Amino acid sequence: MGLNVADLRRGEKGIIKEFTEDVLPIKLLELGCLPGNIVELVQVAPLRDPIYINVNGSHIAIRREVARQIALEPFSPDE
């Protein structure tokens, strides 16, 4: 299994590649959590759930379980 949002460390970024499950909360899609967009891990709660991400300028708190469903490809700022 490849990289997913739950694997990111604070400040790391990735490009959304696909969703591993067919069902993803519609609110995430409305907030810009779409393939091709860059996601950055902003903060992790003290008990490691939820996590706080930035996608297209939208700051979103999501459960780690949902974060594992968002597959990423590595982000390189040089590209």
Rank of each mutant, 00 (worst) to 15 (best):
T20E: 10
N37G: 00
M1L: 08
L31S: 02
A67S: 09
A71G: 01
I15P: 02
Q43D: 14
R64D: 08
V23N: 14
L29Q: 13
L31N: 04
V5R: 04
E30R: 12
N4R: 02
I62D: 07
D7T: 04
N56M: 12
N54Q: 10
R63H: 10
N37Q: 14
P74S: 13
N37T: 02
P74Y: 04
F75H: 15
E21A: 14
L41W: 04
E30V: 07
T20H: 09
R68Y: 04
G32K: 06
P35R: 07
S76K: 11
L8S: 08
P77M: 05
G57C: 07
E18W: 07
L47I: 11
V39R: 00
V66K: 04
L28Q: 02
E79V: 09
K27D: 06
V66F: 10
Q69K: 14
G57Q: 01
I51P: 00
E18H: 08
Q69T: 13
R9T: 00
V55L: 06
G57S: 09
P25W: 00
P77V: 10
E79W: 01
F19T: 05
Y52G: 02
P25T: 10
N56I: 05
E40S: 13
I38E: 12
I51E: 00
N54P: 01
L41Y: 01
I26M: 08
R64P: 00
A45F: 09
N54K: 13
Q43N: 11
I70N: 04
C33G: 01
A45N: 11
E30M: 12
E73I: 14
G14V: 01
R68C: 03
E12P: 06
G36A: 13
A67F: 09
I60G: 02
E73A: 05
A6V: 02
G2S: 13
I15E: 06
V42H: 01
R64A: 05
L47M: 11
D49P: 01
D78W: 06
G32Q: 01
S76Y: 14
D49Y: 06
L28P: 03
L72V: 06
L29M: 11
L41G: 06
I38Q: 07
L34N: 10
I26C: 01
E30W: 03
N54I: 08
L34W: 02
G32A: 08
S58Y: 15
A61D: 08
D7R: 07
G2Q: 10
T20L: 15
Q43E: 15
D49K: 10
R64E: 10
E18Q: 06
D78L: 09
C33V: 15
L24C: 07
S58W: 12
I16C: 07
K27T: 13
T20V: 09
K17E: 15
R48C: 05
L3V: 03
K27R: 11
A61N: 04
I16R: 00
T20F: 11
E12I: 08
D49R: 06
G14A: 05
F75C: 05
I51T: 01
K27H: 02
H59E: 15
I53H: 00
I53A: 04
L3H: 05
I26A: 11
P74M: 07
K13C: 11
H59T: 10
H59N: 14
L72Q: 07
V5K: 05
A45P: 03
E18A: 12
I53W: 01
G57P: 05
N56P: 00
E21I: 06
Q43S: 15
F75N: 14
V55Q: 00
